[in-house]
Design a protein around this nucleic acid. Structure first.
Lengths: 244, 244
DNA sequence: CGGGGGTTTGAGTCCGTTCAAAATACGTGG
DNA sequence: CCACGTATTTTGAACGGACTCAAACCCCCG
């Protein structure tokens, strides 16, 4: 845990934010070239291996992170061990800002879901950039507002829809993000996480996920093989999204 | 709906933000006296009657609101009619800013739960204040971050805890907000909403709420009479908050 | 070839729901 | 102030989706 410079790994690459492909997807895109250089100098590149946690509930908030590559799972756990996977962060996503803005300790845990390279930017450096460039503040206001809407959506879907419909919605999100079209109606997607994580994403048990997948195959909606899924008919999947 | 100046009502009071008791509880508390005057001139006082909606899902976002008195219910509804009561806003709360910051239409509906007097501040006026005073931007960043944490909490509790524990948590929130101590262990609270709204707050059915209340009384945790509730032993209620 | 973690299947249970009806509270007009 | 009609709340019985516990299965890797 917390290791980010294993001895037996190749040295971390030097990353320049101004040429980073993640820049245009992140909140930093509103910065001027000079401010990007400032960002680049203040940041620190880190590597995390599958299972490493970047921060944990209760930690003080020292930095925000910008993901260069890999997938990070953001989880909230209660003191009974029940966990919910709140979201998956990927390349170009900025994460870990919530605790900085509310000036509280971390309320959830960030875990590398596979090999992750991310840059850590100290909180004060971010606040300095916001003071220099009000557009960055607005970008974070918009981002937080968007996240809040998504969280409210999750409350609604998790409490009102059966697991099967929630699964359909999740699959549709993966389809929209990046799918390999195989024919006019058929698409193939790569599930970025294990069944266990799928369960935590949908606030259900792994057994229920297995059963739901089996039911989806039985009904000819999709076929699953490991982390590959082939949706037979996207519009049919869309119909599953409301009620089941 | 949308009516806020009924003909048969007394005229709206002239309200001056600088003397408003809600000021110190709202985000506007970071403003200078001159900026408060600016706020006061830009705002418009409105009155809503029980059941009136202040805005609805799908509306464009024109203003943010600052509640002077009364209770407002913020709801999210899906196109099947399933509704969740996301939160109750009361005197001193600012509301309706989420859609402004994300520059999207309203994602939920705000309904007056009883007689409400609130001030509407046009979105552009708020943005002007934020530009004049960066502390206001930070205050909203902190507020949004806090709301996001609360929403994530709700996801966890709604999916992991039984209704009875969720009810205990809600009652505790009311106790902490304002309770009338009757003895060392016994407190009395006023439930600000109907059973139906209680159900929507807990993401359950009214029938389940009635049964849960009956069970709580049977077990001697609390007694209920209309909108009055007497908690026999607060620490006993606290024990109910995790699992049931 | 033999672990071992992750995944799947099976059987039984429980919590909350649904549907329906009774009871209570509420507001209005007489 | 009481009677009435309506809305809200409560109770009852039956159903169902997801959970629990347990065992079998499978695939990857040593």
């Amino acid at each position: 845990m917390y290791r980010h410079v294993p001895l037996d790994e190749p040295p971390l690459p030097e990353l320049d934010c101004s040429t980073c492909p993640a820049l245009s997807m992140s909140e930093w895109r509103v910065l001027t070239p000079a401010q990007v250089k400032q960002l680049s100098q203040a940041k620190e590149v880190r590597r995390y291996r599958r299972g490493d946690s970047m921060y944990r509930q209760g930690d003080p908030c020292k930095s925000v992170y910008c993901i260069h590559s890999g997938t990070v799972a953001i989880r909230r756990t209660d003191h009974h061990g029940n966990a919910v996977l709140l979201e998956l962060k990927q390349a170009g996503d900025v994460m870990g800002y919530r605790a900085c803005f509310s000036r509280t300790e971390r309320h959830n845990t960030a875990t590398a879901s596979d090999e992750v390279i991310a840059c850590a930017l100290p909180g004060p450096a971010m606040f300095a950039l916001i003071n220099d460039n009000p557009m960055l503040g607005h970008a974070f206001l918009a981002r937080l507002a968007h996240e809040l809407a998504r969280a409210h959506d999750a409350i609604l879907t998790h409490t009102q829809l059966p697991v099967r419909a929630r699964m359909a919605r999740l699959l549709m999100r993966f389809v929209e993000r990046r799918s390999l079209p195989r024919s006019s109606t058929e698409v193939q997607i790569h599930l970025p996480v294990s069944r266990h994580d799928l369960a935590e994403l949908l606030a259900a048990r792994p057994e229920t996920i297995a059963r739901t997948i089996a039911a989806l195959e039985r009904d000819g909606v999709a076929t699953f093989s490991g982390r590959m899924a082939t949706i037979a008919n996207v519009s049919q999947l869309r119909d599953e999204m409301d009620c089941g």
